[in-house]
Design a binder for these strands. Structure first.
Lengths: 144, 144
DNA sequence: CTACCAGTTCAAGTCGACTTGAGGTCAAGA
DNA sequence: TCTTGACCTCAAGTCGACTTGAACTGGTAG
């Protein structure tokens, strides 16, 4: 098996070296060891980083991503917990589809202000039922 | 037409009053005027706030959301620009679907570590082609 | 052997999106 | 008229996810 140093990993994934260190520190990935001070990674870390970036894009926090996949491939969440996350994603996907439709509508609708267009307002109504649970979390008053 | 004060709007949308003020300051919404110091909003602001929350969930920044819809319903972006945003969303939706499939796979696959499961690794490969342009932006070195 | 330089640590800084706190205002009810 | 209390402004603080900078280390090429 080939070992990669951090710059190699960074180059191949597009993830900054500082971010890679940050992920290791937070427990999302692990390095196999060191050559001197320098970290050595297994090739599998490339997939893990792709996965992390996917999760980040989906709006998950680093902690959530770690819980879902683990640095070692062992999720901290139960099967049920994982399915709940997947359900979150299903709702999110529906919301995004609605938003996409609205944007395309805005692009094509000749009405002067889309807010006055009944079809547009209906699209909003349709898409704004159903939030995912993570969303609620964000809306909570900060507990500092 | 009925006018709503900020607490009414907050109650009906679940958006904090401080956030509503923040959105007005950033130009995402407008208030019709004041009664004394107090802002008065038209009922339409409820839909606008739903839209903003949708856009935030999709990962758009407040600036992007303003460009897409405008406080007054007049987007700053061209039709073409809007379609690009919608295309971004299409890609994002595909990525999220892939992530959802992976999470469900992790939940159900009996392999000890999903990173060793060929099917899982293939799911990663499938989902990690195609990033949206906004994602690139985030990956750029900060120009601070 | 020594210099080089990619890589390291740790603390501090940045960015977006709000939140919080202190002190002020004013329409409305007693 | 006087007092509330909801809302106001403005500055500063917070949170997550990194980034940046300064000072340091240690294989490797010359």
């Amino acid at each position: 098996m080939k070992f990669l140093d951090i710059s190699e990993v960074s180059k191949q994934t597009g993830v900054a070296a500082s971010a890679i260190r940050h992920y290791e520190e937070k427990g999302l990935i692990t390095s196999l060891g060191r050559r001197g001070l320098k970290r050595l990674f297994a090739a599998g870390v490339l997939d893990q980083l792709a996965l992390i970036s996917l999760g980040r894009d989906a709006g998950f926090s680093l902690d959530e991503i770690r819980d879902m996949f683990g640095a070692d491939g062992l999720p901290a969440l139960s099967r049920a917990g994982l399915h709940l996350k997947a359900d979150d994603l299903d709702r999110q996907i529906e919301r995004l589809s609605g938003l996409r439709d609205m944007i395309r509508h805005v692009a094509d609708c000749p009405a002067p202000s889309h807010m006055e267009c009944p079809k547009f307002r209906q699209l909003i109504r349709i898409s704004t039922r159903r939030k995912r649970s993570r969303q609620e979390k964000r809306a909570l008053p900060g507990r500092s």
